[in-house]
Amino acid sequence: MTFFLNMKNTSVNSNSPFAKSTLSEFIYEHLIKYYDGNYDDIVILCIGTDRSTGDCLGPLTGYKLSYIPRIYSKVSVLGTLEEPVHAKNLEEKITYIYSSYNNPFVIAIDACLGKLERVGYINVAKGPLKPGAGVNKDLPNVGDIHVTGVVNLGGFMEYIILQNTRLCTVMKMADIISSGFITSLWKFFKQNEKLTTT
């Protein structure tokens, strides 16, 4: 459960019929703009736990993207339903990322709480997110860019709110985020292929 560090973001309503295509464009634009010569590997870090409905957006998305590394050798996905990345192992995973990958470009994905009218919105932004801030946990900032989904109302009784979040809302956002990544990564690597061959 995260807190925004950078409010200059682009967002899409998951209930929009164009949510998948719009989100894929946002992700693609962020990759084109911020993934530069300083980076090599891309690590998609999906944060959250499968023990809380409201906080399982990351693991669900990671599960849906877990086959991606078999298609793109430069892309890795950490944080799935089987092996979630959560408060207890986040620092260890961040250390692992920066010691195991070549100049990693980290894309952090997490659920967040927000205003009632923003529930169901998916945000893409430059810079790190702060996992755990939504439930008052002090965890390290992570991500060169980040994607967050507003799963429920924030501001009070966060743990109870998370436990009572509708799985339908979270599943829909996980579907849209994973689809957005599949399309945007295809476009991004296709574009990079053109750039390196011309």
Rank of each mutant, 00 (worst) to 15 (best):
E83N: 15
R70N: 15
L129Q: 10
L153W: 07
L167Q: 09
V43T: 02
M171P: 02
E82V: 01
G134A: 01
G79F: 01
A111I: 04
T198D: 03
P84F: 04
N9C: 11
V85P: 05
A108K: 07
T22H: 10
E92N: 10
R118M: 06
S73R: 15
L195Y: 15
G149I: 04
Y101K: 14
L31P: 09
N152R: 08
E117M: 12
G79A: 09
F188D: 09
K93H: 05
S76T: 11
K33I: 05
S99Y: 01
D138I: 09
T148A: 07
N192P: 05
G132A: 09
G143M: 06
I42E: 06
S99L: 00
C112R: 00
I42L: 12
V12S: 01
V151S: 13
N6A: 04
E91D: 07
R51L: 10
C168V: 13
T80G: 00
I182W: 00
G143D: 02
L129A: 01
V119A: 12
L185Q: 13
V135T: 12
A133C: 00
K64W: 03
G120Q: 02
K172A: 06
A174T: 07
T197L: 15
T183D: 13
I71D: 12
L78V: 01
T198R: 00
K74E: 15
L139S: 09
E29N: 15
D175P: 04
G180Y: 07
N38D: 14
E92R: 10
L23K: 06
F189N: 12
S16T: 11
D50M: 06
N38P: 03
K187E: 11
P84M: 00
Q191M: 10
L195R: 14
G58L: 00
Y101M: 11
I68C: 05
N15E: 15
T165V: 08
N141L: 04
V75M: 10
I160V: 12
I71C: 05
P131V: 01
G143R: 04
S76Q: 15
F188I: 02
N123W: 02
N15M: 14
N38W: 09
Y34G: 03
V135I: 13
L129W: 03
I47H: 05
F4E: 08
I160T: 13
K93E: 04
H146Q: 08
C168S: 14
G62A: 08
S100W: 05
V75F: 06
V119E: 10
F189I: 10
I122M: 04
V77N: 12
E83Q: 11
T2N: 15
M157I: 07
R166C: 07
M171K: 13
N13G: 03
A125D: 06
Y28R: 06
N123D: 14
